[in-house]
Structures are given as structure tokens and as C-alpha cells.
Computed example of a mutant assay.
Amino acid sequence: MADNWPPQEITLSSGKRILFLTKNLDLIRQQLYDGLNLSMSDLTVDELLDDINTDVMTPAWVCFDHDPAEIAKNGYAGLIHNGKRVFEENALINGNFEVIVSGHRKGTGSSRETAAQAEKWAGIRIVIAASFAPIHERNNINLGQLMGDHEMLEKLQNGATLPLCEFIDKYDPITKLIVENGGIFPFAKQLKSGNIDLPIPECNQRPMTMCEKIIAKKLLATNGKTAYVEPHNAVLASVNGGYSHEFTTAQVHEFLKHEYGENYSLPDPDKFAVFEDHLLYATGVPRFGPFTDKIQTLRNMQNLFQQHTGVRDYSAKDGIS
């Protein structure tokens, strides 16, 4: 597959592999460690794992790393069988997989973005499932991952080339643009540079609720014209405020540096804030002991982000947030 992801035509890459997450965990082990290669024609959807939880993909302790490349080393660390990890450290990376396949409701559980990151930074770019949990699906979209079904995979394994539109035609116009541009950060950068024209909602003048009026007033790309919205419109709107906490701020800082450079800035930083929440009482908790340094790194990087951007600082004082 092309480095400029995603290309307009999707094929399987020579030398890359497909990982099938089967209910038979021994088959997963054979794919990871013994070089077993399976085909969709070898399996039925019922033989694939359903309800794969994001806590299985990246348990909480994995999220103490903020670098996605480090997170990927422990992808699926929460899949335990007979007291042992099915995926040892680096197993997902070392498998040389570009496609991962499961059953129904992929990505249930916590909304953590790290679950999708673990797959992407392990080299996976196509995620196949019968269905996806909505938030996990959105996390994949924001990373520029392609999601398809088992019939599409079987075509790819038979040597077919699929147009990108087969993966994205199910989405609204804005989501299509996000995936076509490789994810939310590249999309936002192109939008800021004026290289993307946002679609304007096709909505005639109508009575609107208070919430709809607020959204309509904040719409981007209306060129100053009065706009109207209605349920199911896909829109982008400016916001009056936002926040980040210490479990996510380190990634925000690093991603913005990567996309916009070391000297990036936030517009209207006084509208945004950081606060301590998830890790406020982690110090001194025995089970968090092995991760003390990583936890402190997350706190320190939130401080760096606040100092760099000038957002409001609601850090804890004397242990009180």
C-alpha cells in the first residue's frame, strides 16, 4: 500500500500479512509465533472473536505510555488465556500485519483512542469486522484507518483492487473528507490551509431548537450567510471552550508538535483548560508503583503543554483538583 495513505485504489501489499482474531486462541498464537497464514475462505464470521473490548486492546497500564509507538508494543496485552498473555510484547508489531480481522461489535468498552493507535502504529491500516462500536469506529476514522467487512476482505485476498469509495461511501461528506485526507490531524491542517472546501448543509429555512440555532451560528464555511441545520446534518462548528486532562494532554501536545511544528499555538487559549483528574490519587497506590515514572511524565507533559499554549491551568493544589 502507498505511503500516502489512503490511496484511491486499495490492494493488499506483497509480503504483508492478515491477522484473524479467532475464538480459537491457539490459532491466534500460531499466526503470531509460528507464521500461520489464514484466509477468510478458511473461516466463518462465527469463528471470529466478538465484542473485543478496548481494555483488552490497551489495558489501563498500557495507557501510561503517551507515545503510540510504545503503546503498539503492548497491543492486545489484555487478551489473557490460562493466566498468560496471548500477545507478548511486540507480538503485534513483529507479525508484519497490515489487516486485522474480527467478528461483531469491534471496540466495545472504554472510549480510549489508544486502542486504535495500538493497531495503527503496529502497521495495521485496514480493520475488518462485521460491525464496530460507534466510538471506536470514530477513533479509527480520526486516525485514517479503513474499515471494511469480510466480503471485502475476501475480494482483496483473491487479488482484487477495491476503490477507496467502497470503504468510505457509507459515511457523511465530512467524514469522507477526514478519511480521504488520512485522519483528523491531516484533515484539520489541510482545512486551515484552505485546501478543503467544506460542504454546506442542504437545509432550507426552518424553525430550529435553541441547540440547533447555536450550532447554525457557529458553523464553519457559511461565508457569513445565515444557515440552517436539521437532525442528521454533518457539520463542523467552532466551539466556545474545551479541556484536556493529564491522561490525554501528553498526546495532544506531541501530536500538535508533529503536525504543526515545535512552535505551534492554539487560537484563543483562554477558552481552553487543563485539569488533573484520572491520575490525581495515583501516587502511593501499590498497583501503580511500577508505573510511577510514567505517571509523573504525563503530569509533567501536561504542565509543559499549559506553559507552551497558555491555556487555563486548573492543576491540583495540595492534592485537590
Rank of each mutant, 00 (worst) to 15 (best):
H245A: 15
L236E: 06
F187Y: 03
L279Q: 01
H150F: 04
A216Q: 07
G107A: 09
P290V: 07
K73T: 05
G35C: 10
A160S: 10
L256E: 08
I215D: 02
K225A: 15
L220F: 08
L48M: 08
I174V: 11
M1T: 13
A60Y: 04
F275P: 01
K73H: 01
N240D: 14
I200S: 07
I141A: 10
G109R: 09
L191G: 01
R112K: 09
F187D: 04
N96D: 07
R312H: 04
L43S: 03
N195T: 11
L146C: 08
I28H: 02
G35T: 10
C203M: 13
S265C: 09
K176A: 06
L146M: 07
W5Y: 11
N139V: 13
L304A: 11
N240E: 08
E98Q: 13
C165A: 14
G95R: 02
Q190F: 03
T309A: 05
I178G: 05
I174R: 01
G194M: 10
M301C: 03
K84C: 07
F291H: 09
N158A: 12
L191I: 10
Y264H: 07
K23F: 13
F167L: 04
D55E: 10
L32G: 02
E154L: 15
D172L: 15
T297M: 07
T222F: 07
L32M: 02
F167R: 01
P201R: 05
G148W: 09
A69Y: 12
L256S: 11
S244W: 08
A237V: 15
A221H: 12
T114C: 13
I174A: 00
M147G: 08
D313R: 02
R112S: 03
F247A: 15
T292N: 00
P269T: 12
I174H: 00
F185H: 02
A133K: 04
F185I: 13
K16P: 06
T292A: 08
D149L: 12
H253W: 13
P201A: 05
G242D: 04
F97D: 01
K294V: 08
K257L: 09
V235A: 10
S39D: 05
A250K: 04
T11N: 07
N140D: 09
T11C: 08
L164T: 04
K189D: 01
D3R: 12
T22N: 08
T297R: 03
I214M: 07
